[in-house]
Write a protein that binds this DNA or RNA. Structure first.
Length: 415
RNA sequence: GGAGGGAUGCCCGAGUGGCUAAAGGGGACGGACUGUAAAUCCGUUGACUACGUCUACGGUGGUUCGAAUCCACCUCCCUCCA
């Protein structure tokens, strides 16, 4: 990772201090631009799913910080590119989504991040743009003449993304080859429409970003900029944001605020300081204090991280509630309300309940969980898979608690 | 258009007629140790009305007492040549 230059502008100074800086196309010029004017900047997101996940969080935080520094963030949704179907996933041909699905995805994504960014018409309000607006209308020959002529195949062949494939004798479709052209074109289009001069992205998109900058110079004689963030991995090397249940989604209907809080609470020791800088807005002095905590005390720092990160995504109230629920569930062993809750008709077999609660995918899995001594009913291990649970298991609040392992708890309410 | 190669469980990947619900690895889950961490060790990892039954090695048929393994056709993917 290149060392971050000493920036003068508020935004870049913060950006670098928070560990979000990886590389920049023209650091001095961009710094000057930030110091001089309100900058419009964009980051592109795929809209194949109805929610973004934690993997996009560094980018979203970049937009948030831009906004806080008084600049204008653009959230570019790849509605157009999604229609073509991104082939880069290698084997499985991705299903091509209908325009209706894409539209629904966009709205859901937007809803999921409403605490993170303020959208609107104000000078530094975020705007949502869909590249289908222009990509859909492209005509092949005019596009080739106006845009295609600026791309040298010779140079495209040297781009890492392409070169790697060719070196390994892996296939690269023409569509895929064109992806970077479309992405480059997005940048120019956003410059024309919104005066957008900066594209931010993960470091893996560097080639595409540079193509856009190049195209801007050729077509518009404009100086555009690229700013990338590092790829975030956990200190043990895993890609961040994957857990048992799959991706850690940002939308509350996919991953509840409580589970989201838990995700951050379970951060590895070595990542606490780094994540506090990247994913919260606590002052540096506070972070410096927290990351120095040793041993079990570091857990306090993780709780702060969890609450702060959850507050940014779901709001302060939801974050505090999640923290409180966790405290009661883990530290007092209570079946705190606020835990994920299901309703069921009692009496019912323990296997059915475990499956209904999402603690096991099938009866077989539930049996195995019991065989491994991992399923608990009201904090007591269940040993008999044929156990029938009736109303006598309910506690004074009229619920019972089922747990898989030490961390996953679900409340069951009688229907 | 021609010639080859391939498709195995969540993923990678062995397996070329019975010993195969399918080696090994990864991942995941549970247990132990801990601090709701990491590392390590142990166990589990197709389903079900569960010492049994059913379903499974791209699809459909066939050969055989018996097929992931052999044959035919089909689908998809890849490589090379033109």
């Amino acid at each position: 990772m290149p060392a971050a230059p000493a920036f003068q502008s508020e935004f870049l100074k913060t950006f670098a201090a928070r560990g979000a800086y990886y590389d920049c196309s023209a650091p001095q010029d961009l710094d000057a631009l930030f110091a001089k004017e309100r900058v419009t900047a964009y980051i592109g997101f795929d809209c194949t799913a109805d929610s973004l996940h934690v993997g996009s969080l560094v980018q979203l935080m970049t937009l948030r910080r831009l906004q806080q520094a008084g600049h204008r963030p653009i959230l570019l949704m790849g509605g157009g590119t999604t229609k073509a179907g991104d082939p880069s996933g290698k084997d499985e041909t991705r299903l091509i989504l209908t325009p209706e699905q894409i539209e629904a995805n966009k709205q859901n994504i937007l809803g999921g991040i409403r605490h993170l960014l303020k959208f609107g018409d104000g000078p530094s309000d975020a705007i949502l743009v869909d590249n289908a607006e222009w990509l859909d209308k492209l005509e092949y020959i005019p596009f080739l003449r106006d845009v295609g002529r600026h791309f040298s195949v010779n140079r495209m062949l040297t781009m890492d993304s392409v070169k790697l494939r060719l070196d390994r004798d892996q296939p690269l479709s023409f569509l895929e080859f064109n992806y970077s052209i479309m992405q480059a074109y997005d940048f120019v289009e956003l410059y024309k429409r919104y005066g957008c001069k900066l594209q931010s992205s993960g470091s893996d998109q560097w080639g595409n970003v540079v193509s856009g900058i190049d195209l801007g110079r050729r077509m518009q004689s404009a100086q555009l900029f690229g700013l990338t963030t590092p790829l975030i991995t956990t200190s043990s090397g895993a890609k961040m944001g994957k857990t048992s249940a799959g991706a850690v989604w940002l939308n509350a209907n996919r991953v509840s605020p409580y589970d989201y809080w838990q995700f951050w609470r379970n951060t590895e020791d070595g990542d606490v300081g780094r994540f506090l800088r990247l994913f919260t807005e606590l002052p540096e002095a506070e972070i410096a204090r927290l990351e120095k905590l040793q041993g079990a005390e570091l857990n306090d720092a993780k709780k702060v991280l969890a609450t702060e990160a959850t507050a940014i995504l779901h709001g302060r109230e939801a974050a505090d509630k999640a923290g409180d629920t966790a405290r009661r569930a883990f530290e007092e062993g209570a079946s705190a309300d606020g835990l994920p809750t299901i309703t069921a008709t009692l009496p019912d077999g323990i296997l059915n309940l475990a499956v209904a609660a999402g603690l096991a995918a099938s009866n077989s899995e539930a049996r195995k969980l019991i065989a491994n001594n991992g399923l608990k009913l009201n904090d007591t291990s269940v040993s008999d898979p044929k156990l029938t649970v009736d109303a006598s298991a309910l506690n004074s609040d009229g619920v019972l608690k089922l747990s898989s392992g030490k961390k996953k708890h679900v409340l069951v309410k009688p229907a």
